[in-house]
Write a protein that binds this DNA or RNA. Structure first.
Length: 234
DNA sequence: GGATTGCTCATCCCGGTCTT
DNA sequence: AAGACCGGGATGAGCAATCC
């Protein structure tokens, strides 16, 4: 099944394998959450889970990620955490646990995610029993670490394929490409106008056009997009 | 012949920096 | 602090080449 997940080409297929893996390993539900960097707001995380919708809504509405000791563990460690009621110590944490257990989220195994490009997240397997120890003992902890690595690798492959699809480089005219190249070289509009033997406003016109094509808010932003798409070299 | 595309140019406004 | 200056950005008009 781990090999299967590397073959997935869509997030939908990937999710199905993830959910099947969790079930196969004896967990009632699973959550895979990841954000681009550790400092990115939690609200912009990508979350794939088969938690109950009501629990997800409650968790988000109460911003429980701010008090969740499992999240706190992931922020500070790469090691797996077998979490139970005992991990929820102070009042806000206990309130979170009460709400969670009422929704069937009683204990679990959490694998922190610290990706190769600074991505941060967690892979959280849930049971509706008081301790997941038996489930983990039967499969062995290293197996879950391996699963996490496969999931990260395959998820990133699907994500980058989707980004490439979205970021097809726009078609620039020869003049726009020349202006982009000189803007990337740090030249001002006036300097470019001298190089290309045209008026400064003409340079501005081409700059405005490639900015629009890159959907950029400034010429610097457009230059970065141009470098990313391979139209110009840094 | 009309529509579209690409290029050039003029004018105006805005925000940041420099000078007095 | 106020004005001058500069770079960046938006808008609109005109012209030439190309396509259908």
């Amino acid at each position: 099944m781990l090999e299967d997940i590397l073959m997935c080409e869509t997030l939908e297929a990937w999710s199905k394998v993830l959910f099947a893996l969790a079930k196969e390993y004896g967990f009632s539900s699973v959550l895979f959450g990841v954000k681009p960097t550790i400092s990115t707001p939690f609200s912009s995380s990508t979350i794939i889970s088969n938690y109950s919708r009501s629990w997800r809504s409650i968790y988000d509405a109460n911003a429980y990620y701010e008090v969740d000791p499992v999240v706190f563990h992931c922020l500070n460690s790469s090691l797996p955490l077998v979490w139970t009621k005992e991990n929820f110590i102070n009042k806000p944490e206990q309130q979170l646990y009460e709400a969670a257990s009422a929704s069937g989220v009683c204990s679990g195994l959490c694998m922190p995610i610290h990706g190769p490009r600074g991505e941060f997240g967690m892979l959280n397997f849930i049971t509706d029993e008081k301790s997941p120890a038996d489930v983990i003992r039967s499969k062995g902890l290293p197996q879950f670490a391996l699963m996490r690595d496969y999931l990260i690798e395959s998820f990133q492959k699907i994500q980058s394929a989707a980004e490439k699809e979205v970021e097809k480089p726009p078609k620039l005219t020869a003049r726009e490409l020349e202006c982009l190249k000189w803007v990337a070289a740090g030249k001002t509009s006036w300097e470019i106008s001298r190089i290309l033997s045209c008026a400064e406003v003409t340079v501005n016109y081409h700059v405005t056009n490639f900015m629009r094509k890159f959907n950029a808010e400034s010429r610097q932003h457009a230059v970065i997009s141009g470098i990313r798409s391979g139209l110009v070299t840094p």
